[in-house]
Amino acid sequence: MAFGKSKNNRLDNEINASSMADIAFLLLIFFLVTTTIEADKGIRVVLPPWSDEPPDILQFEKRNVYSVLINASNQLLVRSEPMSVEDLKDNAKEFIMNPGNRDDLAISPQEAIISLKNDRGTEYKTYIEVYDQLKAAYTELRDDRAMAKYGKEYAFCTFDQRRVIRDEIPLNFSEAEPTSFGKE
């Protein structure tokens, strides 16, 4: 009987969901292919506003200036002495804090100035390495200070605590216009 047959059909009218997985797979593969898990990380800097006259580094006392020169062959000259990049961080830390109160190192961290100068032929890799080491020196000093003062690392301090530390150990970078001896 035709009537009984249609009633029988109505009992199992589920939507077939077996193709759902296929559709999801298709989308998944699309996103897998297009994904670039790209962490946008880098060294953050704030450039100084442009001025036509070059910064006058001579107005500062010589003992407060930590001059770093990088030449076109990627060699370092730190305060008129050749140095390797590996030694730079510890040397800079000693200069900034001056734990032994030597009269040829910075008077205080507030007075210390890092003067960085490179050549137009310097490799970018070396420049970043040097910049990174100098910044690392400051990070470590701030961490030490925060540890001594608040018992936690700089990054975990509150906004006000960080400002106190920042005022104590300010990051004074001065970048001179590069020389152009090397081949670009």
Partner: peptide
């Protein structure tokens, strides 16, 4: 444009 990031 003063805020710069050297990507690394």
């Amino acid at each position: 444009q003063y805020r710069v990031l050297y990507s690394a």
